[in-house]
Computed example of a mutant assay.
Amino acid sequence: MNLRDFASSLRRGRGPSENDLGFGSELTSGQSRLINPDGSYNILRKGASSFRPYQALVEMSWPRFFAVIISFYILVNAVFAGLFMLIGLEHLNGAQTDGTWAGDFAAAFFFSVQTFTTVGYGAVSPAGTAANILAAAGALVGLMGFALATGLFFSRFAKPKANIRFSEKATIRPYKDTGYQSFQFQIVNERNNKVINLSAKVTMSWVEKGPEGHKARRFAFLPLERDEVFLFPLNWVIVHIIDEESPLWGKDKETLQEMEPEFLALLQGFDETFAQDVHANSSYLSRDVVWGQQFERMYWPEEGYTVLDLSRLDELKGLGEA
């Protein structure tokens, strides 16, 4: 079931307790999020877990990935350097040392680097069975290491990811001239690629106290003024109209804060670059919601083009301001 089908099933009458998106109703702490602004789950896993190095290397951040690759490179060559020192540097023809431990280690380390990378300048060569076996093993580890690193680089670059930015703030403001209020936030595609059939779903979560004082987290799907755009070339202001059926109906700023709400935004679209569906998530707490303000216009015509200013995504102004 895709996002649009799921949203349709919610509209057909599921109650607040059935719209929990998998978080359940027992998470009642208003100090923490269910979903972080970057779309990740705000969950700290503890206890038994399986270690999957390939998945971890593909999903970790780029700085951490490079740190792991460089650390592996240095560690492996340091191990081989120690083994060459163990059998004796006299088995490395042409190795130049100053007679100190540091000098011997440096000579062995850089010979290991040349073997590991298959550079082989020719100034130093192994002599004897043990040295040749170590050199062959170092070359094999190097070839396998570069093959794995190449595969990881490709997987990381080829992994589809939606670079859709959410505004830092959401706003509650009058909806046109209807007399209703509305909950609004906006999104924009940071990349200059085509994302088509983009659909949005917004769920509101809040803490509700029962008759016996027991707290439970409730969820309700928020119908949107427009829940899908076929093309996404500009920004999109996502609007929920606060009518009589909305859980926000009749709420002011103080009442909303007491509810400890979180607005969960889920997006799904088709990325033509990767020819795959992409997803983006974010959330807003009550402290992220401003009242009585509107978003600045992000685009305007100029010299035959439409200019889209991404820097205006988070800019707000008072109602009626030019």
Score class of each variant (00 low, 15 high):
residue 4 R to C: 10
residue 7 A to D: 09
residue 12 R to Y: 10
residue 17 S to I: 03
residue 17 S to P: 00
residue 24 G to I: 06
residue 39 G to D: 03
residue 39 G to L: 03
residue 40 S to H: 06
residue 41 Y to A: 12
residue 41 Y to V: 11
residue 42 N to Q: 09
residue 43 I to R: 06
residue 47 G to P: 02
residue 47 G to M: 01
residue 52 R to I: 05
residue 53 P to I: 01
residue 54 Y to V: 12
residue 54 Y to E: 04
residue 56 A to E: 01
residue 57 L to K: 02
residue 58 V to M: 03
residue 59 E to C: 02
residue 60 M to P: 00
residue 61 S to M: 00
residue 68 V to Q: 02
residue 70 I to S: 06
residue 71 S to I: 07
residue 71 S to E: 04
residue 74 I to F: 15
residue 78 A to N: 00
residue 84 F to I: 08
residue 86 L to P: 02
residue 93 N to G: 13
residue 102 A to S: 15
residue 104 D to F: 09
residue 105 F to Q: 09
residue 105 F to T: 10
residue 107 A to T: 09
residue 109 F to G: 07
residue 111 F to W: 08
residue 111 F to C: 07
residue 112 S to T: 12
residue 114 Q to R: 06
residue 117 T to S: 11
residue 120 G to L: 13
residue 122 G to V: 06
residue 125 S to T: 15
residue 126 P to Y: 04
residue 129 T to H: 13
residue 130 A to F: 10
residue 131 A to E: 05
residue 138 G to P: 00
residue 138 G to Q: 05
residue 139 A to W: 04
residue 140 L to T: 15
residue 141 V to R: 05
residue 144 M to N: 10
residue 145 G to Q: 04
residue 147 A to C: 08
residue 148 L to Y: 12
residue 149 A to V: 09
residue 150 T to N: 13
residue 150 T to F: 12
residue 154 F to M: 12
residue 154 F to N: 10
residue 161 K to G: 13
residue 165 R to I: 03
residue 166 F to M: 05
residue 167 S to W: 01
residue 170 A to D: 01
residue 171 T to V: 15
residue 173 R to C: 08
residue 173 R to Y: 03
residue 173 R to D: 08
residue 174 P to M: 01
residue 175 Y to F: 13
residue 177 D to M: 11
residue 181 Q to C: 07
residue 182 S to L: 05
residue 184 Q to N: 15
residue 185 F to G: 02
residue 186 Q to H: 01
residue 191 R to Q: 13
residue 196 I to K: 13
residue 198 L to G: 01
residue 209 K to L: 13
residue 214 H to R: 15
residue 215 K to D: 12
residue 217 R to A: 05
residue 218 R to N: 14
residue 220 A to W: 02
residue 220 A to F: 08
residue 221 F to H: 11
residue 231 L to N: 13
residue 233 P to F: 07
residue 242 I to H: 09
residue 245 E to M: 12
residue 248 L to K: 00
residue 252 D to H: 07
residue 253 K to Y: 05
residue 253 K to N: 10
residue 255 T to L: 14
residue 259 M to R: 08
residue 261 P to W: 02
residue 261 P to G: 06
residue 262 E to F: 04
residue 265 A to Q: 01
residue 272 E to I: 11
residue 273 T to S: 14
residue 273 T to A: 13
residue 274 F to T: 12
residue 274 F to K: 07
residue 275 A to S: 12
residue 275 A to Y: 12
residue 276 Q to E: 15
residue 277 D to I: 11
residue 277 D to Y: 11
residue 279 H to W: 14
residue 281 N to R: 11
residue 282 S to M: 11
residue 284 Y to I: 02
residue 286 S to C: 14
residue 287 R to V: 08
residue 288 D to Y: 03
residue 289 V to Y: 00
residue 289 V to L: 07
residue 293 Q to C: 09
residue 295 F to Y: 05
residue 295 F to R: 00
residue 303 E to G: 05
residue 305 Y to F: 15
residue 310 L to D: 07
residue 315 E to S: 13
residue 315 E to Y: 00
residue 318 G to Q: 05
residue 321 E to G: 05
